[in-house]
Amino acid sequence: MTDFIATLLNDPIVTTVLLAFVPLVFILVYALVVLYGEMKMAAHIQNRLAYMENGWHGTLQPFADMLKLLQKEDIIPAAADKFFFMLAPYLVFVGTYASFAVLPFSSGFIGSDIDLGLFYLVAASSLVVVGLLMSGWASNNKWSLFGALRSAAQIVSYEIPGVLAILGVVMVTGTLNMQTMTQMQDGGIQNWLILGGNFPLGQKLALIPVMVLLFVIYLLSSMAEVNRTPFDLPEAESELVQGYNTEYSGMKFAIFYLAEYANLFLVSAVVVVMFFGGWTSPFGSFMSGPVWSAFWFVAKGMFFVFFNVWLRWTLPRLRVDQLMYVSWKVLTPFAMAAIVAVGFIMVM
């Protein structure tokens, strides 16, 4: 029996598949924490109580929610296009989860260390838009359709400045591989790209303002891409009920929800890798190593998740014309200017 397990573990296909489960476990635990944490933070920000009934300060509430969603009747509206209605949650979740393949969780763990890294991530997470549009159209419901259209328009609008910001970072690092990108920033906080990276002093000082600009552009567009307040027009509950997932119930709804939270961590992780040194320790070689680096990666990622939640419950929702204005007339020109600036600095 032990021999059998040993041969099984030596098989590259089995290990690859096993490794592919690791981020899934992480996502599930993370979703429970954030589900609880977000409601609690929201409550404290807006001065009200949140979960208090189940367990100490409502800590068992996420589990209760999970059980409830599992048992809930699944309603497929008679008017809906059944096949696409059922396919949409798959696209949304698979698109999100496939993007986790290239996240360097620690110096010793990355799902798939491809050189295409970031580029692949942008491409795979675009599957989510297809899923959202599909869910809205197949639901055959006016709220869903408008939610999906808004969502698609918003995501594609903000993808431009977001991808341009990624391009700026790629011009600096000269690689798309996220693990290599992180290793470039190893050696302490002064080597993080937001502080100019590991370059000669003159270049470093010139890079700092550009990197901060790129960081702000990417942060804003990533928040818009995950459809959260102040950019949550697609599911503006006072106008569109629940947006694209109005008709979804039970486990299908839970999948959408899980994908949204996973996406939130994904964009936070990309921010961390591109600007804040990924899994590298801020103290150089102190507190580094595979386990510590996983800790740093998750801690930094969770900080940006927290930041997102914080903004969500503090700011009101944007109007649609303001949303388009910010994307096309503010972020895009600034992103293009930043790219030209990065080019100048790197060539000089």
Binding site: V17, A20, V94, T96, Y97
Partner: peptide, 9 residues
């Protein structure tokens, strides 16, 4: 590995 992630998802 990427294919594995698609399948696991």
């Amino acid at each position: 590995g990427i294919l594995a992630f698609f399948i696991v998802g």
